[in-house]
């Protein structure tokens, strides 16, 4: 709000100032709405805890994630009859501490989620912003590319490409990053179309701003909140796909403690000790649920009209 009223109307300006002071700023209003959204609060707290544990894994973890102890294989977790406090969540088939591997596994999931979204977000946003702003033929070409990308079976192509580039952490990130940009492109395109019609973009064009400048400093900041929502959902998607790829043996390779890999390695013991897959599966569900809650919550708080 502009409070530079002309001199002489002191009472009016004072009233305006007071109103401005009493009205909550955008930021506090946003914070207040966020705190009232229970899903967002639960999701963010869970996510923060997981991120903190992942970052502090070397300090918190009771054991070495790679240290094998064949004398203590498949010890059940603490809530079962033979559990010990030394291995709260038990040990795997090579006697490695499950809690420790779970903590280090969170690093892998989060790393893959974040880096994949960085790559796919850059690709999808660039494509979508160009298609939405320029329209016409550029737009047709983009929607054609998106249609083609959607026709490719993701899991299959990701598996095949991961096998081609050599299954590794880096390989999985690159493959998923190059595959999961479609939703970014679609959302960016439609948001850009809306923003491009506004008066302030017309004004920027009228004062002679260059097209790149309009795209970067007028349009990009205004589609950012929609992008963040897509980013969280795609991050969850990437984490789930990595777990599936690792489960199928073509993602992250042993001995890295990926959660998908832990489930895959535990599969042969699941009939007698279901917790071997139950523990990493529960961790995976918690992480993905937390990210999705944050994404849905942010959408509700920033753009309530898109709810549903």
């Amino acid at each position: 709000m502009n409070v530079t009223a002309p001199a002489g109307t002191d009472a009016a300006t004072d009233a305006l100032r007071e109103a401005a002071a009493a009205r909550p700023t955008l930021r506090t209003a946003f914070l207040r709405r966020s705190l009232r959204h229970s899903g967002l609060v639960i999701g963010s707290v869970t996510l923060l805890v997981i991120v903190a544990v992942a970052l502090a894994a070397p300090l918190l973890a009771p054991h070495d994630p790679y240290a094998q102890d064949l004398a203590h294989r498949l010890i059940p977790p603490i809530w079962q009859a033979n559990g010990t406090w030394d291995h709260v969540l038990g040990t795997d088939k090579l006697g490695r501490d499950y809690l420790t591997r779970l903590m280090y596994g969170a690093r892998i999931s989060l790393l893959i989620g974040a880096l994949t979204v960085l790559i796919s977000g850059t690709i999808g946003t660039s494509l979508g912003i160009c298609a939405g702003y320029f329209g016409g033929r550029v737009d047709s070409v983009l929607s054609y590319i998106v249609t083609t990308r959607l026709a490719l079976p993701v899991v299959l192509v990701a598996l095949a490409s991961a096998a081609l580039v050599g299954s590794s952490l880096e390989g999985v990130i690159v493959v998923l990053g190059l595959l999961l940009w479609d939703r970014f492109a679609v959302v960016t395109r439609s948001s850009t179309q809306q923003i491009a019609r506004t008066d302030y973009v017309a004004a920027a064009r009228a004062i002679g701003c260059s097209t790149p400048r309009i795209l970067v400093s007028e349009i990009l900041p205004n589609i950012l909140s929609a992008l963040i929502v897509v980013a969280t959902l795609e991050m969850a998607h990437a984490i789930l796909l990595e777990a599936a790829l690792s489960f199928l043996g073509l993602g992250v390779q042993p001995p890295l403690p990926s959660w998908g890999l832990m489930i895959s390695e535990g599969k042969q013991y699941m009939f007698f000790s279901p917790w071997v897959i139950g523990v990493p599966a529960a961790a995976l569900v918690c992480l993905v649920l937390a990210i999705n809650l944050v994404g849905d919550g942010l959408r509700d708080v920033t753009a309530p009209e898109n709810r549903g």
């Binding site: 789930l240 599936a244 489960f247 489930i263 599969k267 599966a281 569900v285 993905v288 649920l289």
Partner: peptide, 9 residues
């Protein structure tokens, strides 16, 4: 949030 392969298992 539940991966299909976890649900299957």
């Amino acid at each position: 949030a539940v991966p299909t392969f976890c649900l299957g298992l």
